[in-house]
């Protein structure tokens, strides 16, 4: 006898997506722990931005803040947005967007960082346009 069984395939049961594209989501305790870490890292960011320059470590402000922001973003995506437990296919469009975004930010900053920028005020008039074009 063929292995055939009846299955109701209503739209409501189709909405019950958990079977195929996800695994178990984190527990409530994990969610609260993640929030605690995010809270502490955000507090550390605020302290670092204001305290490091006062103790002569201003050069550490940007790298430390960037690292902390990346950690926060990764935790939100992995645990709150469930990329860690969901199908890897969901990661692809987000990773593509993030790579494009980071590429644009880095390349444009690299392109303009050494260029003199001229404020175009009405007083400068045509001179402003000429200076900006150089």
């Amino acid at each position: 006898m063929s292995a055939t069984h009846q299955a109701t395939h209503s739209s409501a049961s189709h909405d019950a997506h958990g079977a195929h594209d996800t695994h178990a989501h984190p527990s409530t305790r994990t969610y609260i722990n993640i929030f605690g870490v995010l809270f502490l890292v955000t507090a550390a960011e605020v302290v670092a931005a204001q305290a490091l320059p006062l103790v002569g470590l201003a050069s550490l402000v940007v790298p430390s803040l960037l690292i902390m922001a990346v950690v926060k973003g990764a935790m939100i995506m992995m645990y709150y947005m469930h990329l860690k437990s969901d199908s890897a296919w969901f990661t692809v469009p987000m990773a593509f967007g993030l790579i494009l975004a980071a590429g644009m930010l880095i390349s444009m900053i690299g392109l303009f960082i050494g260029s003199p920028r001229v404020a175009c005020t009405p007083e400068l008039g045509k001179g402003c346009v000429a200076a900006a074009a150089k």
């Binding site: 969901f90 469009p93 987000m94 593509f96 967007g97 975004a101």
Partner: peptide, 12 residues
């Protein structure tokens, strides 16, 4: 997710 990926570029 595709929309969110594109929105990353918008905010970037």
């Amino acid at each position: 997710w595709i929309f969110l990926g594109s929105d990353c570029v918008f905010f970037a």
